[in-house]
């Protein structure tokens, strides 16, 4: 499966990466080279094989409903690029996407 230039641009938008034209073109080449190797998997008949998401058969790992200490607000905002009144500040939302 070859990846086209428009595929690269679409994927870059999904991944929120502003690529230069030069990056788009070199990534198209590199990704196709990597995918060319990976495509050997397409040839395998794995119809009857179950997919593995977790290598070990562990289930039901949960925590009790217990409150633990939070971060101080000072620490929560320690690395904030911009903060105001205890909140993180971001620019206008236009075109940001969607909600839940």
């Amino acid at each position: 499966m070859a990846i086209s230039e428009s595929d690269v641009r679409h994927v870059a938008l999904l991944a929120r990466l502003a690529l230069t034209d030069g990056q788009v073109s070199s990534l198209q080449t590199e990704l196709n080279s990597i995918l060319g190797h990976i495509d050997e998997l397409q040839g395998l008949d794995l119809a009857d094989v179950q997919p593995t998401a977790h290598a070990l058969e562990v289930t039901n790992s949960m925590r009790p409903d217990v409150v633990k200490p939070c971060l101080s607000r000072e620490l929560a905002l320690r690395n904030a690029p911009e903060a105001e009144g205890g909140a993180f500040v971001i620019p206008a939302m236009a075109g940001a996407g969607e909600d839940v």
């Binding site: 925590r63 409903d65 217990v66 409150v67 633990k68 200490p69 939070c70 971060l71 607000r73 929560a76 905002l77 009144g85 205890g86 909140a87 993180f88």
Partner: peptide, 27 residues
């Protein structure tokens, strides 16, 4: 009605000063 959040131990409450019920997980 739960005491703590879905994936961390921060309390479930309404309102409050911004970013006072957060931890590394829910941030």
């Amino acid at each position: 009605s739960l005491k703590s959040k879905m994936f961390c131990g921060c309390p479930v409450e309404f309102g409050g000063e911004p970013n006072t019920r957060v931890c590394p997980v829910c941030l």
